[in-house]
């Protein structure tokens, strides 16, 4: 099922995210599959990250297929960091062939933060170009205009970071992604409601579905770690203080409470939510149940 069909039906689209395991999965069911399965009744689809943070892992396509085989709807994340234009197109053909319906086109984190910092980054194509290429494949042609024996049929997603300053520059790129074929957007994690409001206001005329992205903050230490080490996300002091005021065994309850609150405030501004639970997927059912009982969005 394509996410675009859900957006067309005006569904509030809920997705989560899992990171493939660092290892082979020939025997047994890996934890990330179990994690995704636990969300089956709560989300429409589950993103599968692509060697996230430039750390080498099981490929996102293979991991997406594992989820598909379990009856889950994967969103295959595809980055430009490790593949040239031939590999990207080939992987898009492969994805469609293997039954994938949704692909999220990204640039990819820089190698410097990863576990192979000595590797050569590819970056032959950027995310705007990748969207344009993926759209061509959907129309039956490759980048060079050659005919395909069978076109792909993929819903094309993209990302945007509302935290970016100057925001207008990020929106300029968002518009280019939109013009190049992006059919839905997932945002970087945002915790500043006012900031998101500004972003939502400036993008409402774009006419493209946007899912609010939220990383589940698991502890005050994690909040501080993100601020010090992860660029592009800011965890506000109020959130860190609120977590710090709780005892460690209450952190998960607190995460449920904060995430629910953020969604109540931001949910009405968007067409869906994208959770990035980083292993704490059990938070999501609790958040969704709370929202369902009190709020029309998420229902």
């Amino acid at each position: 099922m394509k996410l675009t069909e859900l957006f067309q039906r005006k569904e509030f689209v809920i997705t989560s995210e899992v990171g493939p395991v660092k290892g082979c999965c020939r025997n047994g069911q890996p934890e990330f599959v179990q994690e995704a399965k636990s969300l089956k009744d709560y989300v429409h689809a589950v993103n599968v990250t692509d060697n996230q943070s430039a750390k080498m892992r099981l490929g996102s396509l293979a991991a997406s297929v594992l989820l598909k085989n379990q009856g889950l709807e994967p969103v295959f994340q595809l980055t430009c960091r490790d593949r040239n234009r031939i590999a990207l197109q080939s992987d898009l053909l492969s994805a469609c062939t293997l039954g994938i319906d949704n692909v999220l086109c990204l640039t990819g984190d820089h190698l410097r933060q990863g576990d192979h910092p000595t590797a050569k980054g590819v970056f032959d194509i950027d995310s705007v170009q990748l969207l344009s290429i993926a759209r061509s494949l959907n129309q039956g042609n490759d980048l060079m205009g050659n005919d395909l024996t069978q076109a792909t049929d993929l819903a094309l997603g993209a990302v945007v970071n509302p935290n970016f300053q100057p925001l207008d520059l990020q929106l300029l790129k968002m518009e280019k992604k939109l013009a190049s074929g992006a059919q839905f957007f997932q945002t970087q994690a945002v915790y500043d409601v006012r900031l998101f409001e500004t972003f939502a206001r400036k993008t409402e005329d774009f006419g493209v579905p946007i899912q609010y992205g939220v990383v589940i903050i698991k502890s005050p230490q994690m909040g501080r770690f993100i601020n010090e080490n992860i660029t592009g996300i800011t965890v506000p002091q109020w959130l860190i203080d609120e977590m710090a005021a709780a005892s460690p065994e209450q952190y998960k309850d607190k995460a449920v409470e904060i995430t629910t609150r953020l969604l109540r405030q931001i949910g009405p501004m968007v067409q869906g939510v994208h959770f990035m639970p980083l292993g704490w997927s059990d938070v999501i059912p609790r958040v969704m149940e709370r929202l369902r009982s009190t709020c029309q969005c998420g229902g």
Partner: peptide, 9 residues
Amino acid sequence: LNGPCGGSE
């Protein structure tokens, strides 16, 4: 070539 990534801060 088409604008910044989301990682700039």
